[in-house]
Nucleic acid binder design. Structure first.
Lengths: 238, 238
DNA sequence: GTCGATAAAATTGTATACAACTAATTGCGT
DNA sequence: ACGCAATTAGTTGTATACAATTTTATCGAC
């Protein structure tokens, strides 16, 4: 899946494994935004020296998945509301643009692969495996964009999707956080019919739907309002 | 210009300076693709330890401006032809998309700023200052996209533009490598009239024009062909 | 108890020493 | 001269020690 290069070096591969572990843990919401990532702890966990951990952390910081504050260490990024909006707006541009360039490049096998991912996502959803559902939902989008045959575009979208899972972890309501199964299916159908312009439109709607399902207001716990409400209500034991 | 954050730390700032130096040297084609970047040399040049240099090099590698091969060090990236095509295709999607989202956000002052950059580029062109012309041409595109008010989008485009200067350095003909002055002016005019859809179309054409002006065939110096030609012609002194 | 300053602990930032690897050179045999 | 191994020089990869900084804990004074 993510094995793209021949991996010349064993050391290179070890770095990659640590990176993939952390990346997956973040995208699956097993590590929630704000979680601190002390270098010593990670080094001990992965059996590597801080030098290696540091390299991986900087890579994750570059991708916007963690934030490194000078002398204060790393923590899982907490996307701001404007940043989240920008990310979804950029995804709309890129993913719709990818669909528009896809005409004549999509084979029957490609469509089957998309359907398989979609089915797996549906399955995970039914089983209540939320982490798997989120991951497969992302994989659907990544795989879809890949059909445009533009490696640069694919990488940009993959990174934005990873950041999107941080957005969902921060602002998503506990239920119904992933794409609706039927919407992905609709996109597959439109592509199968060769209606790429319509598919692009639908994708735009789809992403807007996801964005709208988020709860922007809760960003800051709004300490003042919470306390006022608490005082107004029944003040239980301290 | 690039001073975005308060820069809490002096060390942080020192890293940034080294990064900016290398970044500018690459984008201005003062460091050409393929140039090797030994860590010791850079460390001595900038008066820093290899630890610092290493950090900066990895950042440049993430952005695709240099390539780090395991155990073999870093060198200025040499974009392949497919990669170059993908970069321009992605720029078309992003920059046209930015223009489409710009309606109602552009002030008269913004237009003046664009005109100023364009004039400066024209000036550099006339003076024969090729490095400045390339830099200002990139700045025009970056500033233009910035008017969409999407920071994520702006950063992605800025990175692709940096890589574009590597493409131009690799495949560009020595003359007429930058955007035509009149095309940028045309885009400004269309925006001033509020014709954002037309401006987006024109931007697409503009980027395609740049892409077409490149010489894809010369990628590998094609040793065999060159030698055959040499033997067939007049073989001068060895 | 609360607040403040001080001290201790924990954590990150950096330089450097050494190991591992690659590239270049030498030297030998044919 | 040529090819090929062995040696040497040069460069990168990593762990670690130490310095700098932040965070936590301690301890009086009010």
């Amino acid at each position: 899946m993510t094995k793209t290069e021949p991996l010349k070096d064993a050391a290179q591969e070890r770095d990659e494994i640590i990176y993939q572990h952390l990346h997956a843990a973040i995208c699956d919401s097993r590590l929630l935004p704000g979680t601190r990532l002390p270098e010593d702890t990670l080094a001990e966990t992965f059996g590597a020296s801080r030098t290696i951990i540091r390299k991986v952390l900087q890579r994750l910081a570059y991708e916007g998945l963690i934030e490194i504050r000078p002398n204060r260490g790393a923590q899982i990024a907490e996307p701001s509301v404007p940043e989240a909006r920008d990310i979804f707006a950029t995804r709309r541009i890129l993913e719709c643009g990818a669909l528009a360039e896809m005409a004549g490049k999509v084979s029957a096998a490609d469509l089957e692969a998309l359907k398989a991912i979609n089915a797996a996502e549906d399955d995970a959803q039914l089983k209540g495996d939320r982490a798997a559902a989120i991951r497969l939902s992302g994989e659907f989008h990544i795989h879809l964009v890949g059909l445009a045959g533009n490696a640069v575009l694919s990488e940009l979208v993959a990174r934005l999707i990873a950041r999107s899972s941080l957005i969902i972890a921060t602002y998503g309501s506990p239920i119904s956080v992933t794409c609706r199964h039927s919407e992905h299916e609709q996109i597959i159908d439109l592509i199968a019919r060769g209606a790429f312009a319509e598919a692009a439109d639908w994708m735009g709607e789809h992403l807007t739907t996801i964005e709208r399902s988020l709860r922007w207001e809760q960003e800051t716990p709004d300490l003042q309002a919470v306390l006022r409400e608490f005082i107004g209500g029944s003040a239980a034991k301290p």
